[in-house]
Nucleic acid binder design. Structure first.
Length: 509
RNA sequence: GGCCGAUUCGUCUAGCGGUUAGGACAUCGCCCUUUCACGGCGGUAACACGGGUUCGAUUCCCGUAUCGGUCACCA
């Protein structure tokens, strides 16, 4: 019998949540739900220097927007509260001191300058790696080299100190990553990492291991950038006596730049004209605004679907998945190992798929607002009709209004190329005949009826419909392209259609 | 540079010893249509390289190359 699955998403509130972080959260969430387990949100704010106001709220709002539900966390509570690491200081300290007592860690008093000097010395001596380790620690100021009385005196005097892990000199550390298989690292490659900083707060390494253990985390699903330090974490579990209940690890492939080298960054967003953050973010220090997927018009379902497929694949040919379907289909075995380039074109395609699935009513307010923002009064009813007319053509809801612009005003100019090619005697005849027919028409002004009226009128006038339709469109909208003309007329209304026809006849001749 | 990881169409990927190497985005062509889109149909396009193992390697092993990550009192 294995324990119920518990996973955590553990971001650092140092700014807006990066889209890669959203994917990590998503995979954690999918796995938790799939396994019938719990998902916790833990805020890793152990670096006071990097605190950014608003970042924590941003993270919570972003997860909520994409549809990731947190079972336990600072905002929703839970049995392992607090879920903010800055509020768990004593817990880490207790474990750190325990490690020192058990001879698995030690106090170190070296100043930053002394550390720099040490690294420089080692580099000049061509040492394989300039690290604080089993050999170099003997030359530094710590509780391993200083007399016990000295150490006590320094601590009592309030001298700043850190606690470092006493990494073994020769030991093979293995871990079985769920995605990558066995990874072996020699302990000589791991240095004596700082566990507890001089400000009394833990580093990521200690905090993450202690919390994951205390919170009963069964699976650590995180980005590949953590793989190099994973063996260190294994060592920590061992030294803390928790190796038998150590969580399983799964290191996710990274999200890479759309082109060129390196991992996806904010700079790519500026360059490529797409967002890398879920929500818009205003930097509280500089006032700089970074665009967000939400504000750019992406539907959360589309973003989720897109993100899920960046590094994972269900193994079938189904592409469109609701969150529930993703949960059902998700498995860690199907996560790809290699990094994935971020291709925003694919994201747009997913959005297109979801936009066309939306009801007209749900999209209409966007259209209404855009129209009124541009100075055209628009009822919700009209906006709904326009949405129905155009939503299948666009990738984003905000693209509907620009496509529908010609509905809102009589053309003040006409596309010259179309005029030259299509505005001939037949066209004039057709426009005139249709105008006359419309003048006496008393039926309902609906697309189907209009279509009949036009066909009938043209037949009587002996004009082939196909030859003049583009000219009719030109007369009514000023352009040669656009959505269904009959539907367009229906929305414009009989009055306005007549006005436009008359104007065109005056101005195009 | 040391360590760790990765490598299938331009991109996301399927493949888990024998396949005409499949799908999607993008791209190109055709069809549909009153036009532009949407949509439908079809095309171009990939196993990084070199050694093994094997009757047989995209698939397993070892090198090489390339790419990525990481080497802080940051996470």
């Amino acid at each position: 019998m294995s324990n119920p699955v518990r996973v955590r998403f553990a971001p650092s509130p140092t700014g807006p949540l990066h889209i890669g972080g959203v994917r990590t959260a998503l995979y954690n969430y999918l796995f938790a739900r799939k396994m019938g387990g719990k998902m916790l949100l833990r805020i890793e704010d152990t670096d006071q220097n990097r605190f950014v106001p608003g970042a924590e709220d941003y993270i919570i709002e972003a997860l909520k927007w994409v549809g990731i539900q947190i079972d336990e966390g600072q905002s929703v509570g839970g049995p392992d509260a607090p879920y903010r690491q800055s509020e768990r200081k004593e817990i880490y300290q207790k474990e750190a001191f325990r490690l020192v007592d058990e001879g698995k860690a030690y106090y170190a008093f070296d100043t930053p300058e002394e550390l720099d000097a040490m690294r420089q010395r080692l580099e000049e001596a061509n040492a394989p790696a300039a690290q604080y380790n089993a050999i170099t620690r003997l030359q530094m100021k710590n509780s391993l080299t200083l007399p016990a009385a000295d150490v006590k005196a320094r601590i009592d005097a309030g001298d700043p100190y850190v606690i470092r892990l006493k990494t073994p000199r020769k030991e093979e550390v293995r871990l079985n990553d769920l995605i990558r298989g066995w990874v072996n690292v020699h302990s000589s490659a791991i240095d004596d990492k700082v566990l507890l900083k001089s400000d009394g707060l833990p580093t990521y390494h200690l905090a993450n291991v202690v919390d994951d253990h205390l919170m009963g985390i069964t699976h650590v699903i995180r980005g590949e950038e953590w793989l190099p330090s994973a063996p260190l974490h294994v060592l920590l579990y061992r030294y803390l006596g928790w190796e038998s209940t150590m969580p399983q690890f799964a290191h996710l492939p990274l999200l890479l730049k759309p082109e060129g080298n390196g991992k996806l960054s904010k700079r790519d967003a500026d360059l490529g004209g797409f967002p890398v953050f879920p929500l818009e973010w205003t930097d509280p220090f500089t006032g700089t605004v970074a665009r967000g997927f939400r504000e750019d018009g992406y539907l959360p379902q589309a973003l989720v679907n897109f993100l899920a497929f960046l590094g994972w694949n269900p193994g079938t040919e189904q592409e469109l998945f609701t969150m529930d379907e993703l949960i059902e289909a998700f498995s860690i075995e199907n996560i790809h190992k290699g990094g994935a380039r971020f291709d925003v074109e694919k994201a747009k395609w997913f959005n297109h798929q979801y936009i066309r699935q939306q009801t007209d009513a749900s999209l209409a307010p966007v259209v209404q607002q855009a129209a009124e923002g541009a100075g055209f009064p628009c009822t919700l009813e009209k906006a709904t009709k326009i949405t129905a007319l155009l939503k299948e053509r666009v990738n984003f809801a905000h693209e509907i209004f620009p496509e529908a612009r010609t509905i809102f005003y009589s053309p003040d100019s006409y596309d010259e190329a179309v005029r030259a090619a299509k505005w001939n005697a037949d066209a004039q005849g057709a426009a005139t005949a249709f105008r006359d027919a419309l003048n006496t028409y008393e039926g309902e002004f609906m697309a189907d009826a209009i279509k009949h009226l036009l066909a009938e009128t043209l037949q009587q006038a002996g004009i082939k419909q196909g030859k003049v339709m583009q000219a009719m469109r030109l007369a009514l909208t000023g352009t040669g392209a656009g959505p269904d003309l009959m539907l367009t007329m229906e929305i414009i209304g009989r009055e306005e259609t007549l006005i436009r026809l008359n104007r065109a006849l005056e101005r195009l001749n």
